[in-house]
Design a protein around this nucleic acid. Structure first.
Lengths: 213, 213
DNA sequence: AGAATTTGGCAAGACGTCATGCCAGAATTG
DNA sequence: CAATTCTGGCATGACGTCTTGCCAAATTCT
């Protein structure tokens, strides 16, 4: 009952965590390649190399797996962006480029993640709310970053224009990234990053200029 | 066999078409409010007020219904855009605003259509390919319109920058529109249209300016 | 070595959906 | 009015998934 014996030198709690991680990794694979509709308990456990019984040890439904997969990728993404921005020189364009490059490199190195972040959340009702939260969080992050360059006073002046511009930039980045992964943009990844940075700066300057005038 | 007797004064072919239309309308309702995952034969026919048997008269699978629903909304959308652009004065900004206003008004008047156009296609594998086609078509439409204002010679100079800019604008429009429908943007619909037009023009000018320099 | 625990494989009933078929009532044609 | 055709309701067998439970093999602790 109060079990918890070590197995193969690994304590019980850690084994649980490993199994959960294996399920999430398998979930990324299935959702990222076949879509959330194909995510079944049996298929997930088979790919994770685990018994079906262990599914219910960590999750109550496949929707929970979906959420965990998304959270996993988003945590990786925000971490990559934050460290990249911190390491970049104190310059608007340099900061923007660092953030965009970090995001694009992470997501295009593994197009399963592109799909999980940009496509699936819109489909699965379970992720709709989370997707909205994430979008708001990124918008807030962009707006916050912008304030560092244009001065905190701009915040008041920018107002809803800032939210609009941030959402616009987020959407543009998402669409161009998925189009590029799909092979519809005949440019290199570095060009993709450069142009995304260009438009980020252009939109940002227009927003600040318009809102403060 | 060679049937086709009129019923209630309506010939057979027209009755078939009416039933099909009822199914597509019910499909828009279900997909637009609950998502494509909830689209089942029984539920669809119940909402359409039709017998399940008639489903197979017009469709072979629920995926086909999904495609028909998307096609229906997209046809409406392109029609609205084309007529609005044609009626607008010969001015870059006026044309852009007319197109954007037509799209935004149509899609936000009925947020089921917003979801069908922007959210579901990414999720349902059956619509993935179509979504890509549609994106390409809209990109081509935007690029084509741009050539009318900046002159056909720009086409060669713009090249892949044009595709990139068009995809960016499309994504920005999609994200801001869904955010607005969600209630995350504290602006009026007219402001939404104005700002979307602003950024459309700004991005367009930057693309032409950069690519031709 | 022996007892206890962990693990994987498998089976079973329950549930929802699919695709088709049958039947009786309603409407139309001759 | 009789025959034909259309329509709606219902039922069926098949299929895939879910969730729980049992059993034998593997591994660990005493």
């Amino acid at each position: 009952m109060a079990a918890g014996r070590a197995y193969a030198g690994v304590p019980a709690a850690q084994r649980r965590a490993l199994r959960r991680a294996a399920l999430v990794a398998a979930g990324l694979d299935i959702v990222g390649t076949q879509g959330s509709a194909r995510l079944t308990v049996a298929g997930l456990c088979a790919r994770a190399g685990l018994n079906e019984r262990y599914f219910y040890e960590s999750f109550a439904s496949t929707d929970e797996v979906l959420g965990a997969v998304l959270d996993d990728v988003l945590a990786e993404l925000t971490s990559a962006i934050v460290t990249a921005v911190a390491a970049a020189p104190q310059d608007t364009r340099a900061k923007a480029r660092a953030a965009i490059a970090a995001a694009i490199e992470l997501l295009t190195d593994d197009d399963r993640k592109t799909r999980v972040v940009f496509a699936e959340p819109l489909a699965a009702p379970a992720l709709m709310a989370r997707r909205a939260e994430v979008a708001r969080a990124f918008v807030a992050l962009i707006v916050g970053q912008a304030q560092e360059f244009y001065g905190p006073a701009t915040a008041l002046r920018v107002g809803s224009w800032g939210d609009f511009g941030a959402a616009y930039v987020l959407g543009g980045l998402a669409e161009t990234m998925t189009a590029w992964v799909r092979g519809d943009l005949a440019i290199s990844r570095d060009e993709l990053i450069d142009r995304a940075t260009d438009l980020f700066v252009v939109v940002g300057e227009h927003v600040v200029g318009t809102a403060s005038s």
